[in-house]
Design a protein around this nucleic acid. Structure first.
Length: 205
DNA sequence: ACCCAGGGTCATA
DNA sequence: TATGACCATGGG
């Protein structure tokens, strides 16, 4: 997949703040809808935790509405950046040791393992592997049973097999998502996949 | 008129 | 532990 897609320089964002907002907004949501919401936030001058927290909840809800489940997501953003500010702001918060940062994130309402790890990996350059629905789907299509196991076990499986390098972790997740988004179409890897016959994308055309 | 999308929480059994 | 309901918009 690395040969097929190369280095993707994925997760386009202007900085850590935008990565964190995007990580919450993309929960069970197509990225195109996230972009609309991110643009609305930017147009409203929301460029950091303080700016976001200065807005009333209803205003935040309106801005993130295009990303769906907007009441939940507005509350989650408030909770997240409330923690960030009480931790001294973006810099100090993201500079925490990755393991502690991850624990702090998981303790926040609405931040689960994938959202937390996306923030750790893409905003704080912490050494964690992000496991999402695409990752499990790919493992399933390849007949690798570990994809059925719990989040931490799946992540550990990748950690064991990959070079211990931030860039590798970022790009590995990126190519998995980009590959699956294209539904395994016109991609050589699928032609060589022994289970292509059972791949839902192939079956569904 | 469906189905799904870069999850997470909560109530049940 | 393991399902199911719920959140809710936009594109195919």
């Amino acid at each position: 997949m690395l040969e097929e897609y190369g280095e993707l320089d994925w997760w386009p964002a202007e900085g850590p703040f935008e990565v964190m907002v995007g990580a919450v907004l993309t929960q069970r949501t197509a990225w195109t809808n996230v972009e609309t919401a991110l643009q609305a936030l930017k147009a409203a001058g929301v460029d950091g935790p303080a700016a976001l927290l200065s807005l009333p909840s209803g205003r935040i809800e309106g801005l993130v509405r295009p990303s769906g489940t907007y009441r939940q997501k507005a509350a989650r953003l408030r909770a997240l950046f409330g923690e960030v500010e009480s931790g001294g702001g973006l810099g100090p918060f993201l500079s925490l040791p990755p393991a502690e940062l991850r624990r702090r994130l998981l303790a926040i309402r609405g931040i689960g393992p994938e959202t937390a790890d996306s923030i750790v990996l893409y905003a704080a350059s912490g050494h964690v592997f992000v496991v999402d629905a695409y990752t499990r789907r790919l493992l399933g299509r390849l007949g690798i049973g570990v994809g059925e196991e719990g989040y931490d076990r799946v992540a550990a499986w990748f950690v064991r097999g990959l070079p211990r390098d931030i860039g590798t972790y970022r790009n590995a997740h990126a190519v998995i998502v980009e590959h699956c988004k294209r539904r395994c179409r016109a991609i050589p890897l699928c032609g060589g996949c022994p289970l292509a016959r059972e791949c839902p994308s192939v079956v569904n055309g």
